[in-house]
């Protein structure tokens, strides 16, 4: 009996403790809020727009993914139907997923490593020359529509540069349809995408390498680093981790969203859907057929793929040098 009463008393005590704790917490929080009013005011304009054009759209997209919606009639709830259709009835979507993954795997890691490698080599150059080389490697990303020149290089007639050269040297007799023969589309497009892929991540690497403190490397040499590869692995890469993380995010996001350049070079839709990616499918249903519900389901899948891949790669990068 006594012990029970004791326990009860203890319980009551803890409960009021909680109350008191939360009371204080709430008061603190309220005070913090009041103190941060200026801060929130500074954030407000940006965050209002960010909410309108980034946060709400993601939610809306997930919601419409469960509906049939053609803009003219109000959306009708259909449950998992869109997803079931995508996965089991839409062969072209599966082709698109396959192509997206293929392009992402062929271009993502290569462009990431190449960005780093070039930034690392550029970092060895003296000032002026370094600035010139940064422009040389970054120019393709700045060049807007200049990638259309690849159309001329790989055009399917004898005037295309590649065909012309190959025929001149007698390697082939008839021109190759680079951009309409599904055997050749992928390698050509991968090349074009890689060419434009030295972007924000590359600049981040250049800057990060420039900021590495020379004295750490000198200390490493005293401790027995013998060549530039060891220096790269043991000192440069670990101290570049934040930039490597940023570069990875930019590269992954870009390589899952390849579409514009493919459509401009291989056509939209492309022969045998050889250059049809998830984004192409999304645009096809969203902007061409106005099946917004179905397109939203595609967008949601794309969203999840991008986020998951980013999180996975960040998890792996955290292990570098750890």
């Amino acid at each position: 009996m006594e012990s029970k009463g004791n326990r009860n008393r203890e319980n009551r005590l803890t409960l009021s403790d909680y109350r008191k704790y939360f009371g204080i917490r709430r008061k603190e929080l309220r005070r913090d809020f009041r103190k941060s009013r200026t801060g929130y005011l500074f954030i407000a304009p940006y965050y209002l727009l960010f909410t309108l054009f980034y946060i709400i759209p993601v939610g809306v997209s997930i919601f419409f993914g469960f509906t049939y919606f053609n803009v003219l009639e109000p959306p009708r709830f259909v449950g998992w139907q869109n997803y079931a259709n995508l996965l089991f009835a839409d062969d072209i979507f599966l082709t698109a997923v396959k192509n997206t993954l293929m392009f992402a795997i062929l271009t993502g890691p290569v462009s990431y490593i190449a960005s780093f490698l070039f930034a690392w080599l550029i970092n060895e150059l003296p000032g002026k020359l370094r600035a010139v080389m940064v422009v040389v490697f970054y120019a393709p990303s700045l060049s807007g529509q200049v990638y259309l020149v690849w159309n001329v290089m790989f055009s399917g007639d004898v005037y295309g540069y590649v065909n012309g050269l190959l025929m001149k040297f007698g390697i082939i007799n008839t021109p190759i349809q680079w951009l309409t023969d599904s055997n050749y589309i992928t390698p050509v497009l991968v090349m074009v995408v890689l060419w434009t892929s030295m972007s924000t991540g590359f600049l981040s690497f250049v800057a990060g390498l420039k900021g590495i403190d020379r004295t750490i490397i000198e200390a490493g040499c005293v401790d027995g680093l013998r060549n530039r590869w060891q220096e790269l692995w043991y000192i440069v890469l670990p101290s570049m981790k934040p930039q490597l993380m940023f570069g990875a995010v930019m590269t992954i996001t870009a390589s899952f969203a390849i579409h514009d350049k493919l459509a401009a070079l291989a056509g939209f839709p492309s022969v045998n859907y050889a250059a049809h990616t998830i984004v192409s499918h999304l645009i096809d249903y969203g902007s061409v057929r106005y099946e917004m519900g179905y397109a939203s389901a595609i967008a949601t899948i794309l969203f999840l793929m991008m986020i998951l891949c980013n999180k996975a790669v960040q998890f792996l990068l955290r292990k570098v040098g750890a």
Binding site: F53, F64, A257, V279, S296
Partner: peptide, 16 residues
């Protein structure tokens, strides 16, 4: 938001 591209939000943005 850096981790997904603008295509994801294209349709809701249009409706917005």
């Amino acid at each position: 938001a850096l981790m997904f591209s603008g295509y994801v939000t294209q349709i809701p943005n249009y409706l917005m």
